[in-house]
Design a binder for these strands. Structure first.
Ligand code: MN
Ligand code: MN
Ligand code: ZN
Ligand code: ZN
Lengths: 153, 153
DNA sequence: TTGATATTGATAATCGTTCTCAACTAGCGT
DNA sequence: ACGCTAGTTGAGAACGATTATCAATATCAA
């Protein structure tokens, strides 16, 4: 039994418990969508996940996928991100990190910086704020896109 | 002649030069919209600025305001921000800063942190990226919203 | 098995923003 | 001043990811 396997089982259990705790139902659709979501690594849109889901379960509707992903966030299984205005990307919930995005090819690099996290808390405290979340995105050109000079801008 | 006055004149000149340099035309509408924009301090949506503009110039259309604000960004007079997905806020272009947003009352606090800026550059460099911009938003509850406990969430 | 309640899928609606396009100018050369 | 031409405008349609609606259907505790 791989680490990956236990992680997925953990997620399934987590959803089941969340549903029970909130008087919600465990449906075929939610199980299928969770399965697809867990099978994806990285960042994905609802629309894109819908494609994957539909490949195996053609009867599941798009609205259900949108709803499920939001549910997964509420249940602590997923995390929503907004790199470009207008599209939501989801990733597996895990240890906190922020992102570096290549505006050339779309590559996404994850990073962690405790120092920055500390400064954020200090800034919030200095202004009397209690932080609930933050959004820290760095945009630029990756090494590859810099060398293949044929880029926009 | 106040500092404020010269700042506004500077902006007007900047737009005029940008337009000339790019074979674009200086129109009544653009002048009027710039006037309204300069009269606003802080952060404002296109839609909201359109209200102001319309009060003085009822014939100017919404599309023109949307276009003008985008133009002002290109000309280096304005800066676009996305605190909530789906709405664009504009502010006067000035020295760089980031934002602390109260999710209770919507208050926006501006902050600067050279240390964070430095870490950002280091992170980018470590990954071979050349940064073009970043988005750093801290969300939380301001002091006032924390005490008046009657808040959402 | 039943029945109350939650969920689903198709589709309409949302909403800030952009696009379309015919009418209208700014601004150059004359 | 005049005229040309390319850029600009305003109204309204179109967009696009997401959400709301709602009748049909599935879940699950009793
Ligand atoms: Mn990530
Ligand atoms: Mn600001
Ligand atoms: Zn790249
Ligand atoms: Zn507040």
């Amino acid at each position: 039994m791989s680490e990956h396997q236990t992680e997925q089982d953990g997620a399934r259990t987590q959803l089941t418990e969340y549903l029970a705790r909130n008087g919600m139902k465990q449906t075929r659709q939610r199980e299928a969508i969770l399965e697809s979501f867990l099978g994806v690594s990285g960042h994905i849109t609802s629309e894109n996940l819908y494609e994957y889901v539909r490949a195996q379960y053609p009867d599941i509707g798009a609205a259900t996928v949108y709803r499920a992903l939001k549910l997964f966030c509420d249940a602590g299984l997923a995390h929503a991100l907004h790199f470009q205005d207008g599209v939501t990307l989801y990733e597996h919930e895990g240890h906190h990190h922020d992102h570096l995005i290549c505006v050339g090819c779309g590559e996404i690099v994850e990073f962690e910086c405790d120092d920055i996290e500390d400064f954020q808390l200090r800034i919030a405290r200095d202004h009397g704020y209690r932080l609930t979340k933050h959004r820290h995105h760095l945009y630029g050109y990756c090494a590859k896109c810099q060398s293949s000079g044929t880029d926009r801008k």
